[in-house]
């Protein structure tokens, strides 16, 4: 869509604006959001195992306290274990009546940006998974869960993951800069989607596994790679990537899929319905990605309608951003390997 020929520079300028804002945001609040996790398993008539895992963010514990309804009492000492990135607390609770319908408050959650994934399983095999968000920091336990609710939970999670995944979005921006037509754009984005769906599925179902640190470095490298191609495009040169962007999108898409999978497994999957959760998460990722692509396209067209004539440096900004951030992350994440 946007070759660096004069008429299309406006679109590139727009991308520059947008990305600068995003970059500013990411620089200020650069951290992955990892949800907290509460698991409640029935072990006896009225007894339940409780596992409460909270992330440690830059050395800080999550300032959130669990508060059960009045009747519920702990029957064992609380056991606590601190890992490198999270704290795990365990104990056993006893509920006077049915646990369903009881309420759990997450005191302090509203002051954070952390979500809590709550999973409850009963001895008879019933399971329920639900998200608690800072906007409504409590949950009423339910012993039934409709499939659509599970799907909704994981779709939202997928949307969040892609919209917070700045590196994935930047890769998509890079792809959008180097494609030459709408047809090529559709083909490229589809290839990226298919590829990352494949590896997301394989990794989540346990058929494939990639260690996290090299993976992150490789994803950064894929962005740097696109930066190089953008420069090639500016110089009027051509390359295999510029002629067939979809093949490159597919190849690197396989890589990004592993990245999505790590996001999904960090949250955990409901053992009851892994395929549904996976599908919903994948759909969420695609919704987020599509919305992002459409927004960029819309703004690109709109800026062209406004007939901006930006200076040369401004039209190069998005390309530079893709390249330099790609390079920066590649170095940073490679150093983390050692």
């Amino acid at each position: 869509m946007s070759h660096a020929s004069g008429s299309c520079r406006t679109g590139v300028l727009l991308l520059g604006f947008l990305i600068s804002f995003l970059a500013a945001c990411v620089c200020v609040s650069a951290h992955e959001i990892r949800p907290a996790y509460l698991q409640i398993d029935q072990i006896g008539q009225n007894r339940f195992n409780v596992l409460w895992r909270t992330p440690i963010l830059s050395g800080m514990r999550l300032p959130v306290l669990l508060k059960f309804s009045d009747g519920i009492k702990p029957v064992t000492e609380q056991m606590e274990r601190e890992l490198s990135d999270s704290v795990i607390e365990r104990n056993v609770i006893e509920s006077p009546g049915e646990l369903a319908g009881q309420r759990i408050d997450f005191v302090g959650l509203q002051a954070t940006i952390t979500d809590v994934l709550v999973r409850v399983s009963w001895l008879d095999g019933r399971k329920a998974t639900e998200f608690v968000r800072p906007a409504q920091p409590w949950i009423e336990l339910s012993d039934r869960q409709a499939a659509w609710q599970l799907a909704k939970t994981y779709t939202t999670l997928g949307i969040e993951h892609i919209l917070m995944g700045f590196d994935h979005l930047l890769f998509v921006v890079g792809l959008m800069i180097i494609v030459s037509s709408t047809r090529s754009l559709i083909k490229t984005i589809t290839a990226f989607t298919v590829a990352h769906s494949i590896t997301l599925g394989l990794a989540t179902l346990g058929y494939a596994w990639v260690p996290a640190d090299p993976l992150n470095a490789a994803i950064a490298l894929s962005i740097l790679f696109l930066g190089v191609e953008v420069v090639r495009l500016w110089r009027g040169q051509t390359s295999f990537t510029l002629r067939h962007p979809w093949i490159v999108a597919f190849a690197f898409g396989l890589l990004h899929g592993f990245g999505f999978a790590s996001g999904l497994t960090a949250v955990g999957l409901p053992s009851s319905d892994i395929p549904l959760a996976l599908l919903a998460f994948n759909i969420g990722v695609e919704i987020g990605q599509l919305a992002f692509v459409l927004l960029i396209l819309l703004l690109h067209r709109a800026l062209r309608a406004l007939q901006f004539d930006p200076p040369r440096w401004a039209s190069y900004a998005p390309g530079y951003l893709v390249g330099s951030l790609g390079a920066f992350w590649t170095i940073e994440r490679t150093l983390m390997l050692f």
Partner: peptide, 25 residues
């Protein structure tokens, strides 16, 4: 507040760009 303000301004930019382009086109 700071990051949120930047987020708001990004949205402001998007709205002005889209609405004005619509009207001009």
């Amino acid at each position: 507040d700071w990051v949120a303000l930047i987020g708001t301004v990004a949205a402001v930019l998007a709205v002005t760009v889209l609405v004005s382009a619509l009207i001009i086109s």
